[in-house]
């Protein structure tokens, strides 16, 4: 990896991406989570790569606003990788939109796990441990050490992860393409991606029925009855209902507002 040579333009783009990556959480919504930050971080790369094809540029930007969620530091690795994949797509046509999306989705689960356990649960705890000792004696140095250790390390890691992602992506994808295994890679990434989406639906999507029906003197909690069939079956149902609606051409805004209105109405009826 140390052998990788960046051109002047690549360096410029990577530096701009690094500064933009700080905005990862801006415009955070429950619908797309870090999608907006992802698109913004990718924008220097996309603008440069697609400068001759405006329609493709806009489509790529829209594509990168898709749902995305990972640890803020590990995110830079995926952004670098995405830059490499977009470059391959434009220059050699070896990568498709599907491959890029699949690899992004496949990586967000593992990178979130690694980032949270390393930075949040190890580095932060060590930095805070040192800082707490000093601060409890009234020494402000503790706070400064915390910022330098935890913040500084995260900043440095972000800088290098972005570059590692880019150089790894460029060499790796070239290799895969030359051996004609791009479809196999896309499908393998889809296996991880779809598994992770299934897991995240189980963890994050909550359909909280509070509906109870009185049958004679006993009351039946509907949610328990449904979950007895399969826990979380309502979440799966909701996601696939939405997939169907999206394929039918419903816009996300309709779905989001629909969910909001329906939830408040159902809460009024005491079903939620």
């Amino acid at each position: 990896m140390a052998m990788f040579k960046y051109t002047k333009e690549e360096k410029k783009i990577l530096t701009r991406m690094f500064f933009l990556s700080g905005t990862l959480f801006s415009g955070f919504t429950m619908v797309k989570m870090e999608g907006n930050g992802f698109a913004l971080t990718m924008s220097p790369a996309i603008n440069a790569l697609y400068k001759d094809d405006d329609a493709a540029r806009k489509a790529a930007l829209k594509r990168h606003t898709n749902f995305f969620n990972t640890h803020a530091v590990m995110f830079n690795f995926i952004a670098g990788l995405a830059y490499a994949m977009e470059k391959e797509k434009v220059e050699k046509g070896s990568v498709t939109d599907d491959t890029i999306e699949n690899i992004k989705v496949a990586l967000m689960g593992p990178t979130a796990g690694i980032g949270d356990s390393f930075f949040f649960n190890v580095v932060r705890v060590i930095a805070a441990g040192i800082a707490i000792g000093l601060c409890s004696k009234g020494n402000f140095l503790g706070t400064l050490i915390f910022i330098a250790l935890y913040g500084g390390l995260q900043g440095v890691a972000k800088w290098y992860l972005l570059r590692i992602g880019y150089s790894m992506g460029t060499t790796f994808i070239d290799k895969v393409f030359q051996s004609g295994l791009m479809t196999a890679l896309t499908k393998s990434a889809a296996i991880v991606g779809l598994t992770m989406i299934g897991a995240m639906v189980a963890q994050m999507v909550n359909v909280g029925l509070a509906w109870t029906v009185k049958v004679g003197s006993t009351s039946v909690v509907i949610l328990d009855t449904i979950n007895a069939v399969m826990p979380g079956i309502l979440s799966i149902g909701l996601v696939f209902l939405l997939v169907k609606l999206i394929k039918k051409g419903y816009k996300p805004i309709t779905l989001v507002l629909g969910i909001m209105v329906l939830s408040v109405a159902l809460a009024f009826l005491k079903i939620f």
Partner: peptide, 14 residues
């Protein structure tokens, strides 16, 4: 409750 279901839209798109 809506906020717990909102993520489903993002997952559905992807």
């Amino acid at each position: 409750k809506a906020s717990g279901m909102m993520t489903a839209v993002g997952f559905a798109i992807i």
